[in-house]
Design a protein around this nucleic acid. Structure first.
Lengths: 333, 333
DNA sequence: ATGAAAGCGCTAACAG
DNA sequence: CTGTTAGCGCTTTCAT
């Protein structure tokens, strides 16, 4: 823990070389005599040299920083993604600069402008509602990768979970267990994930020859409250259902609470499936069957992809698969 | 969304003034003729000028960035703190640079060094195990505030929750409801919060004339797993207890699950209290009585405090109070 | 393989 | 109130 004012000149003087040479060993790439390199390295060591990132960035035009713009919709899924991103950049020389669109002032685009003002070398966008055309503009300006959205024309440069397949699998699981009257608590109406999950649900029903009852599909907003509301609505309208597929785990918690408050047992009377596999879900009663999204891998992959892009290499991000975690909140009927 | 290469010189030329004048209107502080100021502003506007943060930092020696070093022990409490921090800095001109000690390579001190290398103007340390002497060194070098730890000599410059009082209140609540055999699942042994909560528990018992039974105090590690283990241990040893005060909500979930798996009902047979008030806790069955820590306020306060310090103003951070959220996981006996 | 020199874009005395 | 003059610490041609 020591103060640090030593500059490249100090170590140049100490090592009896020019600043340029010091710079060269600093940046590795160009060839330096093994002898002088060692001398320089020693000088840096003994002087406790630490490069000034600003001088470096100003001179080189690169900041070694990437902007990560999040919306943090409150999903623990996003937290795992961020951890993956952090890990993905760790040791690469690039530092992620996180900006939360939710808390910063102004619109998402303004937030991005701010990040751009920080002269980031690349951009990682988590979710968000930036228009495709703006995204296309952005991409022209600097390496950009979008997480959590499927974007036309961005194949390989956006990474997301195959929500449709995951929802299909979940619904199929319910059907396999004998359920036919399966309610769906959707996420926010125009949210891409919500739509894909709806499609998976609908497809699974169709493939099993079960007619989709629109009254069994309730719109929600990913909150526990919306799970409670959905169940109330279902109950109030006297709809028959033996299972509920929820937009996420929080919704499932709400739904379960509402059910139990009405004397309906889970899973004896009604089975429940969530989405996200939050840490708690394995420990609630009954443990919640849910879909685990590979947030961490997504974060790591996105970071790696951006790294490639910044090196002008191609980037082929795959579509990620989510996995059903079968637990006790689903019973045979 | 436009490319941005305009520099201070461009706008100086365009406005027929010197770079200095442009710099002056940029930095407000010094007085500029209203006329010229407007001209300059217009020039900036029309050219879409955006200052180069690196040039600015290099020249001024200030980075307008503060380092936020977290340990992210997985507690949602820390997430709310971070949001508070983000909000606290939003609109101040300072950007928080988050670094997660858990994921970065190297020890916590190395992580801090890295942050220092980014020439941050201030430091916000969340939790962590940096020694007091290192912290004192750090503080000499740049404005520093510690969140979540009570540090001797740092009065007003560290902000934390009065865990002892909170634990006292929780335990007292249990006692008021008739409980006398109250188990405690502690947090990690030397963790300051765990110690303070233990003290609060012990004091509450003592004040009510209840003898503390050491066998009822189990060491855990803040995980659901440790809640399960604790209950197993208690049960296996045939200890009598009617309530459990848990290190946090995750532990409470684990404890509850273990209890229920042994046919013990919550709260009819055993009452449970957690700590943290995670979002889920209001929606599990039964809703968990727990302690809400004001994470958001802590984050905002810490940011404000650091801002003061960076302006060379004194900073008087208060001790924060946590609040018991009474829900159905506690029953009268 | 190494050095000299010219900036990167901005701030900060210092004059005037 | 405004212009001039030096740098901040590093990268990067261009020579050598």
């Amino acid at each position: 823990m020591k103060l640090n004012n030593t500059t490249i000149s100090d170590i140049a003087e100490r090592a009896n070389v020019s600043k340029s040479t010091v710079s060269r060993v600093l940046n590795d790439k160009s060839i330096v005599n093994q002898r002088t390199r060692t001398t320089v390295l020693e000088a840096m060591e003994s002087l406790g040299y630490e490069p000034n990132i600003f001088a470096r960035s100003l001179a080189s035009g690169r900041s070694m920083t990437v902007g990560v713009v999040t919306q943090k919709i409150g999903s623990p899924f996003y937290d795992t993604i961020m951890q993956g991103v952090i890990q993905g950049f760790s040791g690469t020389g690039y530092s992620p600069l996180f900006v939360d669109g939710q808390w910063e002032e102004g619109t998402e685009l303004q937030v991005i402008q701010t990040v751009l003002g920080r002269k980031v070398d690349g951009l990682l966008l988590l979710g968000g509602d930036v228009s495709l055309s703006d995204l296309d503009q952005l991409r022209k300006r600097l390496p950009t990768i979008v997480i959590g959205k499927e974007l036309p024309g961005w194949e390989g440069q956006c990474v997301y979970v195959d929500n449709r397949a995951a929802a299909y699998e979940a619904t199929k699981h319910l059907i396999d267990f004998g359920h036919r009257d399966i309610a769906l608590v959707r996420g926010i109406k125009h949210h891409q994930d919500a739509i894909r999950r709806y499609e998976g649900y609908a497809d699974a029903l169709a493939d099993s020859g079960i007619e989709l009852d629109p009254d069994l599909v309730i719109e929600g907003n990913f909150s526990a409250q919306s799970g409670i509301l959905a169940v109330s609505s279902l109950l109030m309208r006297g709809k028959v259902f033996t299972a509920i597929f929820c937009a996420n785990d929080m919704v499932a918690y709400g739904a379960r609470l509402a059910l139990q408050r009405s004397g309906i047992r889970v899973p004896e009377d009604v089975s429940i499936i969530g989405f996200d596999d939050q840490a708690e879900s394995a420990f609630v009663t009954p443990p919640l069957t849910t879909v685990r999204q590979p947030g961490h891998e997504i974060g790591v992959a996105a970071a790696a992809g951006l790294l490639s892009l910044m090196r002008d290499e191609p980037c082929e991000l795959p579509v990620m698969k989510a996995e059903l975690q079968r637990r006790e909140s689903v019973a045979r009927i």
